[in-house]
């Protein structure tokens, strides 16, 4: 899933400036699971903002809404009828949701209420870690299911580098060396011989280096 973290409320207050009718817009998917942008967080943020503005003796209307997703037209359309009531939206979906909402409601300012961080997994409640950078050419088949693109600081494809020691990465003793994990997994899979094979040059044009990307699937297009 896409992992996001809450923005400090002070920052959101600053974003909001002099707006007086504000919709806090959550999303029921990834950001709900990582407890940053779901219905509950919408409630907390809205409640806090209402109290803040009241205390400032400012008459600001703060409403709450949580959509199934903010990255699909059909769900975003659900607020079309009421968007005109607001002079700003705070979206606490990921950056995709914020942008899609802004594209759709072009004349309404849309502000981000979370910091979108990465694609990752929930290791335990309150701990999310990165697993994929969407490089567009997945090499997990070669690397025992462990991604050196997202989990190795240097994105080394024939690792480990010289900085790996005691299974930890040289950038930080708390970061596990991705290549240590790859070696262990290949051994567990009885595929350690594969480790000797050099990785071919990776085509990075499908990564961010090739500019903004898109996926076109004619087979499913209407």
């Amino acid at each position: 899933m896409i992992v996001a973290d809450k923005k400090p409320i002070e920052e959101i207050i600053e974003e909001l400036g002099a707006h007086e009718k504000i919709l806090i817009l959550g999303c029921n998917e990834c950001v709900t699971v990582c407890e940053a942008g779901g219905k509950k967080e919408v409630g907390i943020l809205a409640s806090a903002l209402r109290m803040y503005f009241l205390n400032q003796e400012r008459d600001v209307k703060i409403d709450e809404e949580t959509l199934q997703r903010q990255c699909d037209h059909e769900y975003l359309e659900e607020i079309r009828d009421k968007v005109d009531q607001y002079d700003a939206i705070v979206s606490i979906a990921c950056g995709v949701g914020v942008q899609f909402t802004a594209e759709k409601y072009f004349s309404t300012p849309v502000y981000p209420g979370v910091n979108t961080c990465f694609m990752g997994a929930t290791e335990e409640r309150g701990l999310w870690t990165e697993r994929c950078q969407g490089c567009g050419q997945c090499i997990l088949a070669r690397t025992g299911g462990i991604c050196p693109v997202s989990r190795c600081a240097k994105r080394v494809l024939n690792g480990p580098c010289g900085g790996s020691s005691d299974g930890k990465c040289e950038i930080n003793k708390e970061v596990i060396c991705a290549w240590q994990l790859i070696v262990e997994r290949l051994k567990a899979l009885d595929r350690f011989d594969d480790y000797e094979e050099l990785s071919p040059l990776k085509d990075w044009s499908t990564d961010r280096a090739g500019g903004p990307r898109k996926v076109v699937r004619e087979d499913v297009q209407p």
């Binding site: 409320i9 803040y52 205390n55």
Partner: peptide, 8 residues
């Protein structure tokens, strides 16, 4: 923390 931030 939140209540401090919002002034309550």
């Amino acid at each position: 923390v939140l209540l401090d931030t919002v002034g309550v």
